[in-house]
Design a protein around this nucleic acid. Structure first.
Lengths: 340, 340
DNA sequence: CCTGGCACTCGACTGTAGCGAGTGCCAGTC
DNA sequence: GACTGGCACTCGCTACAGTCGAGTGCCAGG
């Protein structure tokens, strides 16, 4: 049952060749391109074992071998070493991210950069509000009964929302409201605000009570519960590389999945630490993505994680390079955020 | 040279059948499915003329006829009547857009709605800043040398940008700056602000001058010149309907074009009046979209235009329905904006 | 001017044959 | 016992020939 070193070397060679050529690889080609030191016949025997164990399979009886999801998994876990990035690549990353003026700008640049470097579909989650703290809350009167609520988070995210007041609200009251919410909420994590917001309503004087209640409900609903997460996407055109051979002919399910924000969040949003996460083919919980692999990680200033980013591509992707790139980009973005 | 009524009827029938079946249509099938009142042979003669004039063509010698871009053009201009929407569709639009709380929300709902109704790729431009007026400018101190500039436009758009001050700036000065910029700029169209912003710098006292200059440059750069436009996109998965027959086999160029914001703006952003614009195949200036058609229009409150929206699909799309849907959605969105 | 009839074209499909990459197995060797 | 060379076998791919049928263009006649 144990796979000896040579069998592992054969598996590694198969994965590498298949990723490079995109064609089933046979025993002869394998010994020619790699220094295995044995004959094709021997390799065939090893292949038979690997196939029995479910690491590779034959598309048809008389074809070469192709790695299975399980084979890629073993390859990623034990047979590959993350390729260090070239200095040129590092410089490219740095240069690309340096000019960013804005959180929006950072995210957009990052997602395009990732797509370009990996030649895959890139996904970047904006810093999660749940992991952010309130830096400032601003109330801007729009009309006598309307306020614009603007929340600025420490991660740079800015969210706004229109608040429809139950009654016309004088300028002085706006000032009071602004002072009160800021006093209570600034520097608290968004995830911890709900009780504080509730307390605000309870503590405020009866004249401000209705206004504060409205404000509070908007705050809770918009900033804490609803669509708090944002996602940026790039590189969908890369799905068409490898001319429909990847993804078994149909991009449909993939494109559909990429349109669902919830799905994307599931893909890259569930990060607690800054470890790399690789999900290969079947390992994906989302049915539409059974033919794809996802490489993702968390990012944030220092050791803190504020969001996730990653790429999606065919199972036959170059895992070592992709992992290296995703990790490097996540690190640079984290550094960038730390500077603010 | 003039095409008589029957030839036009034949062309219309060809377009309708081809759009419905996606297969070249022959003379026999045509007389069977439409009441043309003549024999296949006669239709063949008409077809020969239509082909000579470039309205239809044969994929191969012994196949039926397919409309050319020119044929679709004639069809759209003279042979089709915009289908009125069903009450059910109207209700769907209304219901879908009703719950929107936010400009962001409106735009997102709109683009998804359009994609769903037309079963095509939908594109919606956020209200253009160039066509918006300033409703309010807010300055929020982030640190002693940093301000967050928040601009709220009358169209509901909110833009923010970090301003790095040359020197620490006291709270009183922030108040002064806020008052000054609001006094001068509120209610002016964004496109008319540059001279006013310049004037602000010139008029302000020497103590505020450096701060105001910095603020002014950020204002000009961010809000007037740079990436002032935003775009939302949905329904890319619809490109895969019609199994690669549309778009002559490769989605690549289409997906690439859709990733370029500039391209999208060119597609739907150049609207002056609220007329429908239909660009068919070759008529598109963008090379990548030579195999696609774009139906777009402007939208805005009342008769004003603040942005564009539309859909993109294969040249063999159902133009009458698509045009009707795009128009209806644009109208509803305009009404929605007018209410704010 | 329209129509029925007819010869013609040509793509789609089917069946056959040959090729070649690749395998599994086995007997022989180190 | 592990490796190797040899060999028979499988099977997808390509080429080729033949058939079918949808559709056309043209022409003579109403």
């Amino acid at each position: 049952m144990g796979l000896d070193d040579r069998k592992l070397a054969v598996l590694r060679a198969i994965v590498e060749d298949y990723v490079a050529t995109q064609e089933p690889v046979g025993s002869r080609a394998l010994v020619e391109r790699h220094q295995l030191g044995v004959s094709p016949a021997t390799v065939r025997n090893d292949m038979a074992v690997l196939e029995e164990e479910g690491y590779i399979r034959q598309p048809h009886t008389s074809a070469g071998r192709v790695p299975t999801d399980r084979g890629y998994r073993l390859f990623v876990d034990r047979l590959s070493r993350v390729k260090p990035l070239s200095p040129a690549e590092r410089r490219a990353i740095e240069r690309f991210l340096l000019g960013a003026v804005d959180l929006d700008d950072v995210v957009h640049r990052t997602v395009r950069l990732l797509a370009q470097l990996t030649r895959q579909v890139a996904v970047v989650q904006y810093p999660s509000l749940a992991r952010s703290s309130v830096r400032h809350l601003e109330l801007v009167p729009i009309s006598t009964t309307r306020l614009m609520l603007v929340m600025i988070a420490d991660t740079g995210r800015v969210e706004q929302r229109l608040v429809e007041m139950p009654a016309p609200i004088p300028a002085d009251d706006v000032t009071d409201l602004r002072r009160l919410v800021n006093e209570k909420l600034v520097d608290t994590r968004l995830s911890e605000t709900p009780p504080l917001v509730q307390a605000l309503v309870d503590e405020v004087g009866p004249d401000l009570r209705p206004a504060m209640a409205t404000l509070a409900s908007v705050l809770l609903e918009t900033l804490v519960e609803r669509h708090e997460e944002r996602i940026a996407l790039a590189g969908t055109a890369n799905l068409t590389r490898g001319g429909l051979l990847d993804f078994q002919g149909s991009l449909r399910p993939i494109l559909e999945a990429l349109e669902e924000e919830v799905v994307l969040l599931k893909l890259i949003g569930e990060v607690e630490e800054s470890t790399m996460r690789v999900r290969i083919g079947d390992e994906n919980e989302i049915d539409n993505l059974r033919a794809a692999s996802v490489v993702s990680t968390g990012y944030g200033p220092g050791s803190m994680i504020v969001g996730g980013l990653g790429v999606l591509g065919p199972t036959r992707m170059d895992y070592p390079s992709t992992i290296a790139t995703v990790r490097a980009v996540a690190r640079y973005v984290g550094d960038l955020l730390a500077q603010n």
